Amino acid sequence: MKQPVGVILAGGLSRRMGGGDKSLLKIGGRTLLAHVIDRFEPQVASLALNANGDTGRFDGYGLPVLPDSIDGFAGPLAGVLAGLDWAVDWGADHVVTAAADTPFFPPDLVPRLMMAVEDAGTSIALAATPDPERGQVRHPTFGLWPVALRDDLRAALQDGLRKVVLWTDKHGAAEAVFPVTRIDPFFNVNTPEDLARAEALLTEGAG
């Protein structure tokens, strides 16, 4: 498998944070987006940002900004589709996505997702973590997606599908399971309290 390209998903409405761009909030004096870029960029052949609205607010990051092609804030799958369409121009076979509000995700995300696909013989892989009560918990904004399925995804979105796992289950997605140590590596910032916790974790040397 060729090295995939990466897309940071930042197209949500951030309702629990009061609106605006969560990715531009700061911990350790730098934006969440900057922390995500630092972790993601070394793992992929090229990197883009999925976001809607005025792209000028991201000018300082040097990334192409990909808006959703499906109207109405259709959720993470719309961002995946935008990434798959962009990947065609790069001649890439796969896209890996990561959420813009998750600053401690694994630095080996991409190779582990690639290995999961190859081991399982599937076309999609999602990140997961073990949970003592719920079993393995999937993190569907962190996934490996084949460009070959972009028209299938486009049709599903146009038919009203919004839930990621309904589409991935249809295609038999593999799971790459990451350990939870001191923190959940997929801890994401949804509320002001989460932002304060992320600041504390960064100060303590998390990740």
Results as ranks from 00 to 15, higher is better:
residue 13 L to R: 13
residue 157 L to Y: 02
residue 40 F to Q: 03
residue 83 G to C: 02
residue 91 G to M: 04
residue 10 A to E: 04
residue 68 D to P: 00
residue 11 G to Y: 07
residue 98 A to V: 15
residue 202 L to H: 13
residue 94 H to T: 12
residue 88 V to I: 10
residue 159 D to S: 15
residue 25 L to I: 01
residue 62 G to A: 02
residue 136 Q to E: 15
residue 162 R to I: 11
residue 17 M to L: 14
residue 72 G to H: 09
residue 143 G to C: 02
residue 7 V to Q: 00
residue 156 A to Y: 12
residue 87 A to S: 06
residue 10 A to T: 06
residue 186 F to P: 12
residue 192 P to L: 14
residue 195 L to S: 10
residue 165 V to I: 10
residue 197 R to C: 03
residue 89 D to M: 13
residue 182 R to D: 10
residue 109 L to V: 00
residue 60 G to T: 07
residue 145 W to Y: 13
residue 15 R to P: 01
residue 100 A to T: 03
residue 61 Y to P: 03
residue 111 P to G: 12
residue 24 L to D: 06
residue 44 V to P: 14
residue 131 D to R: 03
residue 191 T to W: 14
residue 22 K to F: 02
residue 68 D to K: 00
residue 7 V to W: 13
residue 165 V to R: 14
residue 52 N to Y: 08
residue 25 L to T: 01
residue 87 A to R: 07
residue 118 E to V: 10
residue 23 S to V: 14
residue 156 A to P: 01
residue 5 V to C: 15
residue 203 T to A: 15
residue 99 A to E: 13
residue 12 G to Q: 07
residue 89 D to H: 11
residue 26 K to G: 07
residue 15 R to N: 02
residue 139 H to A: 00
residue 29 G to V: 15
residue 154 R to A: 08
residue 140 P to M: 05
residue 75 G to I: 03
residue 145 W to E: 11
residue 85 D to W: 03
residue 82 A to F: 15
residue 175 E to W: 14
residue 42 P to E: 14
residue 187 F to T: 04
residue 186 F to R: 08
residue 85 D to S: 04
residue 183 I to A: 14
residue 49 L to N: 04
residue 166 L to P: 08
residue 45 A to T: 09
residue 160 G to Y: 04
residue 86 W to Q: 01
residue 71 D to R: 08
residue 165 V to F: 12
residue 117 V to Y: 00
residue 110 V to P: 00
residue 158 Q to M: 05
residue 44 V to W: 03
residue 109 L to P: 07
residue 7 V to S: 07
residue 99 A to K: 14
residue 101 D to P: 12
residue 163 K to I: 15
residue 17 M to Q: 06
residue 11 G to R: 03
residue 62 G to W: 02
residue 141 T to G: 09
residue 125 A to K: 01
residue 159 D to V: 06
residue 33 L to V: 05
residue 96 V to M: 05
residue 106 P to M: 04
residue 121 G to E: 14
residue 76 P to R: 05
residue 4 P to D: 06
residue 177 V to E: 06
residue 146 P to F: 12
residue 21 D to M: 02
residue 123 S to V: 11
residue 105 F to R: 12
residue 135 G to F: 07
residue 111 P to F: 00
residue 21 D to I: 01
residue 130 P to G: 01
residue 65 V to E: 00
residue 121 G to Y: 07
residue 56 G to C: 08
residue 94 H to C: 08
residue 43 Q to E: 02
residue 70 I to N: 02
residue 86 W to F: 01
residue 73 F to L: 12
residue 99 A to Q: 15
residue 3 Q to N: 13
residue 196 A to W: 11
residue 109 L to F: 04
residue 17 M to S: 09
residue 126 L to H: 10
residue 42 P to R: 08
residue 142 F to E: 04
residue 150 R to W: 04
residue 173 A to R: 06
residue 74 A to T: 07
residue 88 V to M: 05
residue 70 I to V: 15
residue 56 G to I: 10
residue 184 D to P: 04
residue 124 I to C: 00
residue 130 P to E: 10
residue 12 G to N: 12
residue 124 I to Y: 11
residue 95 V to R: 05
residue 14 S to D: 11
residue 69 S to V: 10
residue 205 G to C: 10
residue 151 D to I: 03
residue 47 L to F: 04
residue 46 S to V: 11
residue 22 K to W: 06
residue 75 G to T: 10
residue 79 G to R: 01
residue 56 G to N: 08
residue 160 G to S: 00
residue 49 L to M: 06
residue 50 N to T: 11
residue 9 L to Y: 05
residue 113 L to C: 00
residue 38 D to M: 01
residue 203 T to D: 13
residue 166 L to C: 10
